[in-house]
Write a protein that binds this DNA or RNA. Structure first.
Lengths: 353, 353
DNA sequence: CCTCAGTCTTGAACCGATACAATAGATCGA
DNA sequence: TCGATCTATTGTATCGGTTCAAGACTGAGG
């Protein structure tokens, strides 16, 4: 059984033309301009394409100019609640105009980010939404120069990003609200579990917390303890370990997101430390489960769906009518949702009622 | 200010060649084969490239070379916990061999599914992992015929899928375990909130529940109430509305996933119906928050990460060494995790302790 | 002085499509 | 019967690179 049969070479437009007894130009027309082809020919060629199971090579296709109907998105993490909601918002908008969303993740790695970007460009994606790994946006600026509109998630940086749009949730403000709230609740020593502070979201959050403390007249040097860790539940539990070793021990933990908070709560529960009496905990993202936890979680709600929707809208506008398009920087405001995990509302009374 | 300045045309390899006073072939060599270029020339050309900020067009580059280093995945839903974990598992495996993962979602729509598939094929993705919308896999079989290895998520169907691999979590068993457990806890009327039963996952879950009831000697006709809805928290709340109108009212609800369960719990809480005493609730997926809810949620744990990892492994093997590759059907077993939401463990005692 | 091997460089074919100008045929009015 | 018009089709340049056989030059050896 010589299994090394014919390695069926990929079928090209030429093969179809030959088989159907027409020129390549006609096949191309069948593909892109079916209106001009005689119905009889059209049918025959289509049948042949079907027969040979022909799939046009997109690379060659785009090389000449035409692009696909796909939009790309590069997130820092496939497994974050942020990404899920934003992607859904994008999809909703894109579907309206018949675009398909293709998502990839840089996994917080700049190398991989460059890889994703190159891939998307190669594939002729119409536009890209990206959550940059670093503050240095040159990779993306170059993509723009090369002709792929790119919308970044993040603040319109000091420079003059006149050549691109951005969408953004004011995380400085969001984390500031958390910090201010904790201070208002009487906390004077607050831990903040950050993602990697080099990354944009991490940086902003840190700034927000710090500024809020200063504004409240506290000295961040001893009022703020910044802990770093992977932004998921296990990371949260590890971060908690570190926090609990601090001396004096913080009385509140502001977490990078709700999953981290989940881990923190888990760790506290295991140790029998009560929330919020002995330790206040705040999350970020206001995931759906935040309300339903054993101790409902204070969190920051972000209009993620809207953010994705708006981003997709900008992308579509930019590729569909570049003349009319003016670059914009859309900013959304987060909202603090206070729940039991940071506010000791006469719980016992409420519960016994 | 006539802003219609020079639309800086993209710098091509030809321009570099001209500016550096060499042929395009030499520039190409500088790029791909620097060893063969004389050091002096090399330096000059590189300087010129820098000067003109030349970036080779990846499309043209690939055109000659072949395929990209990307793998595709088509999920039913971007926003499901299932997708997130599986994608992460895939990424972990793919990263080992320097592949990039590109995710798209069919949004449960067969049309869109076909679109995604075509897009991925066009883009020269090396292999595809898909969670099919329907039981009819012909679209995927054709992709395989056309030369794109495709791994499906789902049971190895009755037919003879000898030409592809599949990965699979035995959901019939998983949902069966839930149903059996509920029966064992004394429930005789059980609601099951399904996703669309036409879809594969929905179908399997329904079958599993039904079989388990039969096996327990119950008649599904009146022991099982199947409710349909969008598989998220809001969908869960709506499903609950329907369930509560039933007469006689079910005493347990098996939910399609943990998010649905979240919505159900929310609705029950709002109505002051206690869990599990007045209504038992089970989820599916065993998300991280399941343990931490007000009433910890019984759920079914699936090795999602492993599933993704295994799938990616198959894909890589198939594209990297097609000769050695033998198609396989990998099945994973789910695991029932019983918590308070279905088991009335002397709660009051525990709490007061 | 000539040959030969070795080092660089280059012209041109090629990848797989698109798009445009040109052509062939059919139809029609005068 | 003869252009004029239309419609359907096709030849071919083109996109921006890669690749490879062949050419130009150099220096060593006979």
């Amino acid at each position: 059984m010589a299994d090394g049969q014919v390695v069926r070479r990929r079928v090209r437009i030429r093969d179809v033309a030959q088989a159907a007894g027409v020129s390549v130009a006609t096949v191309s027309n069948v593909l892109n301009n079916p209106g001009v082809v005689a119905p009889e020919t059209l049918g025959r060629v289509q049948a042949t394409m079907e027969d040979l199971s022909f799939v046009p090579n997109p690379l060659a296709r785009q090389l000449r100019g035409g692009r696909t109907r796909a939009m790309g998105a590069i997130f820092l993490d496939v497994a974050s609640p942020f990404h899920m909601e934003v992607a859904r918002g994008m999809e909703d908008r894109l579907a309206e105009d018949g675009f398909i969303l293709v998502v990839s993740s840089s996994d917080r790695d700049t190398e991989k980010e460059i890889g994703c970007l190159a891939l998307f460009e190669e594939q002729g994606v119409r536009a890209i939404l990206a959550q940059p790994t670093s503050r240095d946006h040159t990779v993306f600026e170059r993509a723009i120069e090369r002709g792929t509109p790119t919308v970044l998630i993040g603040p319109a940086d000091g420079g003059e990003p006149r050549d691109r749009c951005s969408v953004h949730v004011d995380n400085v403000r969001g984390s500031g609200m958390v910090a201010a709230h904790l201070v208002a609740e009487g906390h004077r020593r607050i831990a903040f579990t950050n993602d990697r502070p080099e990354d944009r979201p991490g940086e902003n959050r840190a700034v927000g917390v710090r500024e809020a403390l200063v504004e409240a007249g506290l000295d961040p040097t001893d009022a703020l303890i910044e802990v770093q860790g992977v932004p998921d539940a296990d990371g949260g539990e590890e971060a908690l370990d570190q926090v609990l070793q601090m001396n004096p021990r913080p009385t509140a933990i502001a977490c990078f997101n709700d999953y981290v908070a989940l881990g923190v709560l888990r760790g506290l529960q295991r140790r029998g430390i009560s929330v919020p009496d002995e330790m206040a905990v705040a999350g970020y993202d206001d995931t759906e489960f935040a309300t339903m936890l054993g101790v409902p979680l204070t969190s920051v709600r972000m209009p993620k769906h809207q953010l994705g929707y708006a981003a997709a809208d900008l992308m579509i506008e930019e590729t569909e009518k570049p003349e009319e398009h003016r670059h914009r920087h859309v900013q959304f405001q987060p909202e603090l949702v206070v729940r039991e995990s940071t506010r000791p509302v006469r719980r016992s009374a409420a519960r016994r009622a």
